[in-house]
Nucleic acid binder design. Sequence first.
DNA 1: ATCCTTCTGTGACTTGGAGTCATCTATGGG
DNA 2: CCCATAGATGACTCCAAGTCACAGAAGGAT
Lengths: 257, 257
Amino acid sequence: MGGIASSPVVPPHYVRTPPLRPRSENKRSRIVDAAMQHFAKHGYHAARVGDIANELGIAKGSIFQHFGSKDGLFFEVYKRAVRSFSKYLDAPAEVRAAGFFQVLYYWLVRTEHMLHEDWIPYRISLLGNYGTDLLLKREINRFLTTEDPYGTVAFVRFGLERGELRNDMDVEMIVSILDWTVERFQDALLTAELDPGLFRRQSEMPEKKEARIRQFLELLQRAIGTPSVIGKSRPEARKVAAEMRKAAAPVVGRQKL
Amino acid sequence: MGGIASSPVVPPHYVRTPPLRPRSENKRSRIVDAAMQHFAKHGYHAARVGDIANELGIAKGSIFQHFGSKDGLFFEVYKRAVRSFSKYLDAPAEVRAAGFFQVLYYWLVRTEHMLHEDWIPYRISLLGNYGTDLLLKREINRFLTTEDPYGTVAFVRFGLERGELRNDMDVEMIVSILDWTVERFQDALLTAELDPGLFRRQSEMPEKKEARIRQFLELLQRAIGTPSVIGKSRPEARKVAAEMRKAAAPVVGRQKL
DNA sequence: ATCCTTCTGTGACTTGGAGTCATCTATGGG
DNA sequence: CCCATAGATGACTCCAAGTCACAGAAGGAT
């Protein structure tokens, strides 16, 4: 066959490992900032490298000197955006104390607020996940697995140590399932751009969303949680949830998860 | 805020509703065929409309006359590719008789074979899901929800009627979860292009894959299956699976799911 | 047949943005 | 003060998408 396996070799555009002087590092950073705005605002294709250069008052060639290509620039932007998100275990200590699924609940509820406050990095991650090119997407996946920017692996270990997650599956399996479903759930919850069915009809009413989140969490509990957790945590969960809702006003830091 | 919600309006390039003479329909079809080859082989960006026209011995302008833009052409290609896949309930009658999760197992096991036989439409669907543009992706999602080409909704109803799926969740929720996880699972199982972790280390050994599929199915059973199903179907499942493996040689028809 | 109208095809042309490169300028070390 | 090197520049090339004015068919109607 060939085809998929033997797709063209990716040029090593993306990686940079020069000595990198301090002054230069500074400029790189400014470029990445400006580029993030443009990509977020216009999408990958409609964003123009020339415009970015204009806005910064520098020459277009300069950007190519630093990043090699538009793809390379976007990849840098993507990494910065994703790194700006919190990791799962960055939840407040009391939430962590309440357990794995409470942490998850915590972030899911906050997702919407976070988006409204700071939609730019979220949009960048959306572009990286769905809106560029398969070659770039592959690079992005490599990055995600090696760097684990959301701290999913540590989070899953946390759940395992507390005995809240089943230990009859590979950690990797749990991590993948969690990453996939949470990512898609958030996409569906948050954007009109991508909603393959979940919120087809009733995307408006807010307490419906709350119900969806609960449904989703319970589903995840059954899927990857230990049997004991499933029944047990329900009432306790409600209590913690109520507390959290009271304290929800001051949302700290930007966030995807 | 704005940003995400207020992204630029998509031009109605994609839809065509002219009277459409028979001769023209014929040519359209030939173009779509050739284009599918090119997109699959080179990816979205690297595929050239000019090349497609050359191969067919027609003028480039002709293609734009028919499809308005490269995006429009790709969208047509995508629809054809996805429609060529089987629906869940197209599984053989004996497999259907064995129940919801056996049907799922049936398709998951076959996925790899199907890919090797006929990788082109699969690659197209991959491009549509991850490798083009958010505007196009939105259009694609609209198509997927209205047309339900894999027959997921009917399949879920089938499971509900047989009492194999929980009835304490919205149908839409089950459909979405199924679509997401199966899609990603297949991507991870099948392509080196996209594998966010699942097959990171041991993507080779084949019986490991078999084990993964079982693990995944059991997980799904716990997540969306009725409690009774989970314990019950295990031994029965093995029996059916063994039978199916014997009869697996003649794979009929092309398939994604 | 002939005319007229409408649909279909054509290819030279325009547009516009990514990427290049010879040349210039700043920097810092000796 | 000089030189070597890193970094910046913008005019230029390249290339592919998309346009358009015109040129053939097809198909009625008379």
